[in-house]
Design a binder for these strands. Sequence first.
DNA 1: TAGAGCCTGGACAACGTTGTCACGTCCGGG
DNA 2: CCCGGACGTGACAACGTTGTCCAGGCTCTA
Lengths: 378, 378
Amino acid sequence: MLDDTSSYKPMDHRSPMDNRTGHRIVPETARRADLLPDRRSGTRYGNRPTMKDVAARAGVGLKTVSRVVNGEPGVTADTERRVQEAIEALGFRRNDSARVLRKGRTASIGLVLEDLADPFYGPLSRAVEEVARAHGALLINGSSAEDPDREQELALALCARRVDGLVVIPAGDDHRYLEPEIKAGVATVFVDRPAGRIDADVVLSDNFGGARDGVAHLIAHGHRRIGFIGDMPRIHTAAERLRGYRTAMADAGIPVEDSWTSLGVTDPQRVSRAAEEMLSGPEPVTAVFAGNNRVTVTVVRVLAEHRRPVALVGFDDFELADLLQPGVTVVAQDAAQLGRTAAERLFRQLDGILVTPERIELPTRLIARGSGELPPAG
Amino acid sequence: MLDDTSSYKPMDHRSPMDNRTGHRIVPETARRADLLPDRRSGTRYGNRPTMKDVAARAGVGLKTVSRVVNGEPGVTADTERRVQEAIEALGFRRNDSARVLRKGRTASIGLVLEDLADPFYGPLSRAVEEVARAHGALLINGSSAEDPDREQELALALCARRVDGLVVIPAGDDHRYLEPEIKAGVATVFVDRPAGRIDADVVLSDNFGGARDGVAHLIAHGHRRIGFIGDMPRIHTAAERLRGYRTAMADAGIPVEDSWTSLGVTDPQRVSRAAEEMLSGPEPVTAVFAGNNRVTVTVVRVLAEHRRPVALVGFDDFELADLLQPGVTVVAQDAAQLGRTAAERLFRQLDGILVTPERIELPTRLIARGSGELPPAG
DNA sequence: TAGAGCCTGGACAACGTTGTCACGTCCGGG
DNA sequence: CCCGGACGTGACAACGTTGTCCAGGCTCTA
């Protein structure tokens, strides 16, 4: 993780626990760097002015500067002016690290999500940010890249930063590592997927119901041979959507053939192959239910090159779904609402209002645009 | 900004400078909260164990714990084991605030962007994050919502957190407020738009050249009456793209009529109206150049309901552009590459390698998909 | 066996801020 | 005229960590 060719020597974000197995070998370059006069000999990290400097320049006491900086009462207009002048002249900026150390609160919350580049998480993150901002807090977010280890690493790094609260979109299925943190007072809310082996607040979409309704929609339009392409059932949302698919089929008395479901594929190539397999053969499916927006888009691409019209319903809405030919029918979940709900619950925890962990499920909405209303062909 | 109905009492992120105009009125609720036993009476923010506690439990000295936690050499295996046990038993986690205070480096960088929910910035942010991670640093990002004041507030809040570096996507056009920070050693790189009234590193796309090529592409396909819909020229990228448009037209010897350009509109309704105006009248445009991805999408919607085919080239690529009918020809810029380049330059600054601010311009790429190759109609 | 050198571990100060408390001054009322 | 209180101000400790420095015990060699 460390780039040893670089002399930028950041702190080590690994948790103390990571040391369990023995001594860490300090890289040679880092050891050398330790000897270099990079500490506070003043070359690079130009000594910033402190309140002490401001106080000296303004000819007042340290605490008076603190009062001015924090807008506390009990400072005459004249003194305040002198202090302000000194602040501006020196370019002073309060050091929040010291402040946090003293106060015990950081006024920041952490968000661990899968991938900021995913159009589903952008709005979610933004919604959390807005709520945080409304409460005067800063949001720090990081991507787990769907890797449980990285999720843990990130969450614990945020805890080491002493964020007041944590919103986590789980990548892994065991979050006991957060128990000491929660016990220590870190407010925690899980979003999109439930927490693993730990009792905590969870905000979810109704993945099961949404998928069931989406598949039922296809059945209502005459389909019986319906394919399902989704993510690994290890991922809770994927499992729930699969369950919704199976339930809808069972409710309609339709036996599901193995060849109709494809699980665990996410990359476009394999999704394409899976879709093409379902669409060929002696008894091809006449409709496809896509388990998430990435799958949906790939399936759309496959269907675009397909002769026979095939019905499609996707989980997750996406931009431009209405402009495609035909428009793509989706089961939409409101990412921003998920984020907002989670963040608000987080702050209610911080207010000390909430005690019992709860599981909140937000409804989904079926949006018919054409692709889900195509009749069975062939 | 503060939600006074909430008892969550975060720190005040305003910069000290904001106090210039006088005392801040402390809200009554906040003052009351000061008296409540919420400080460190221990009810909520459960006293976390410190190294001292660990040391006591393990029966060793404080510094020995520090050594174990940081993987420093000079601790026997037996002592280390005892310390590790104590750490685990107490659920200790190093307090990075104290660490930062002591070390002077935070191993975190800040990113100020416009809106995380915008599909252009998600990948950019993610790219910056990955580079930061490779250098062992954490990324803190915030949205300015295109508001210069909010940009400043955010950037200064990040500086108060003592981020080691700052990547800024400017919303405003005056960044002199960052001068003291840069002087104090905060590495700074501006992305996507140049910094205002300050000499700093800038990473840009070739907005001018891209737009010129895009418009030239339309001209090459026989168009002469070409419309331009873009953002306020106050925004640098918008201005550059407009300049590219004008230059391409001038190069082809085509005089531009006022009614062909629409500036400063961003919301879908007004973009729609602007597009419809260009497309009606006695001498309608036969092609449109859209100044950014949001405009492009809206124009696509308008054109979809239009009788006559109208050619379209958009600045910025977007997902599914190839699946529309016809595929949308775009001038693509690589958001991730912008982020990567900026972040790498930032860390090179932190390494002390760079001295002279530079302006880096990344090329754009024209992707022909059909809409830009339509011949003039009417 | 004594002295030199290494290895392990701990005492202590410092980082920059804020909460506590105490000091001096000025005012009004007794 | 003096006392009580309000007000402006500053000295000081503490937050949790890390760098420095020193002490004591060990090994190794002469």
